[in-house]
Design a protein around this nucleic acid. Structure first.
Lengths: 232, 232
DNA sequence: TAATAAATATGACTTTTGTCATGTTTGAGA
DNA sequence: TCTCAAACATGACAAAAGTCATATTTATTA
């Protein structure tokens, strides 16, 4: 539990990681006055696909999965968002309904910032607009990489990649287990495969001593082996 | 052949389709003075993956394929860009090297606009920045859709979808053939599959009278059948 | 803590997709 | 127009991945 006192955006460390750092003192103050902080419990929905958002969500802690329902009824996780990331920007900018759902993987703390503040700052502060643009350009680049991975790599390679991604972006604990713990179903949904296939590959990796598991937890034992299988 | 006289951005119809329309008269004038127009022949490269771009390319006519080389040596086409689309924005904004290669599918006419003009306008004209942002938000949304398609749909569904996409975005001629003619290899590369698999599916569709072919050309005969197989 | 539901795991089988070989057609250039 | 290379096409087979059935383990909650 946080002390709950750090509720001014001006002082929020999370801001370091996102485009809000390009806001002026006054703009930030205004945002800080109108924002609301909320706790989202593990598994709860932040917003749904098709929903119109009247603001953005700034992640203070925890992890969120952004997913899209495909025609065959399966959910595809498109992105995992963590501390400092801002959700819902796209909808606010393009004034369209969200094409993704956001759901908490962990218990989360998020700040809701009303649309108007963001839009107003975008229209008046070019620094902010360019900063947002830079983030979006980066996201788009990442999306391209995902497209290439999805279409050109085997499921096995994608699972290996997912584990390395999780290690690099969320870290591991003192015992060598990945900090971010996802269910097998969620891993399958990140990788874009059937849950059974995903479990089978995890079993195989375990047998080959590439990874270890303890309940849902996964620890990487042989990073090199995983890397090697990715760029074959 | 165009008359070649229409070389001022202010008068260029193409501008209607892209973010350049948010530029002021003066900005546009400046761009127009510093831009250079060039002809790119079918198959020629506009820029390469890993290259640093010192400007953006505005497509006046023709079609370009944006692709990324995957680890297994295959090219994955991430996007097809046509009249009005601006290539290379991301690199200019994020000051990184390009993550994609651009190659002409048709004979093309493109305008090269130096980086400085774009960056300067971004930093001083919020309207322009927001307009670019809006385009980028749209691209990102499309990229999400592609990710979901790639991971959740079968190759057959993706081929069907590619044909419908080509019809909707590039049209068809008086005889009902798709205006955009891609090689089987390029179609495979859009869809993310082996060329042989792609050809086999085309043969199957032809046998079932969903499409007709004439050389490289493809015509849709039963749009409904293709649509139905997509959302199964 | 017992009962129940949900998640994980594995086997058996089918379908999908890729690969390699090889033949055919098409198109560009000599 | 002929030649040759590239693109297209198809068969045969192998590998990858999905599906369904069914245990087994782990959580949840009554």
């Amino acid at each position: 539990m946080k002390d709950g006192k750090e509720t001014r955006c001006e002082n929020c460390i999370v801001r370091q990681f996102n485009s809000l750092r390009a806001m002026s003192k006054e703009e930030l103050k205004k945002v800080s006055d109108s924002k609301t902080t909320k706790i989202v419990k593990k598994g709860e929905v932040i917003f749904q696909e098709g929903e119109k958002l009247n603001g953005v969500y700034c992640v203070r802690s925890g992890v969120s999965k952004l997913s899209k329902l495909s025609a065959n009824g399966k959910d595809q996780i498109v992105k995992l968002a963590t501390k400092g990331q801002v959700l819902g920007q796209r909808c606010v900018i393009s004034e369209e309904v969200s094409n993704l759902s956001a759901r908490a993987v962990d218990d989360m703390e998020v700040c809701f910032i009303p649309k108007d503040d963001v839009v107003h700052t975008l229209n008046t502060n070019p620094n902010f607009a360019v900063e947002v643009l830079r983030h979006m350009a980066h996201d788009l680049k990442e999306a391209d990489d995902v497209i290439v991975n999805m279409s050109q790599k085997t499921v096995k390679q994608r699972v290996a990649e997912a584990f390395l991604y999780m290690k690099n972006n969320f870290g591991e604990d003192s015992e060598g287990y990945l900090t971010l713990t996802l269910s097998r179903e969620d891993i399958a949904s990140v990788v874009g495969t059937a849950t059974e296939s995903c479990i089978r590959i995890i079993s195989e990796f375990k047998k080959k001593k590439y990874i270890k598991t303890s309940g849902k937890q996964i620890g990487i034992l042989d990073e090199r082996a995983l890397e090697d299988m990715i760029d074959s």
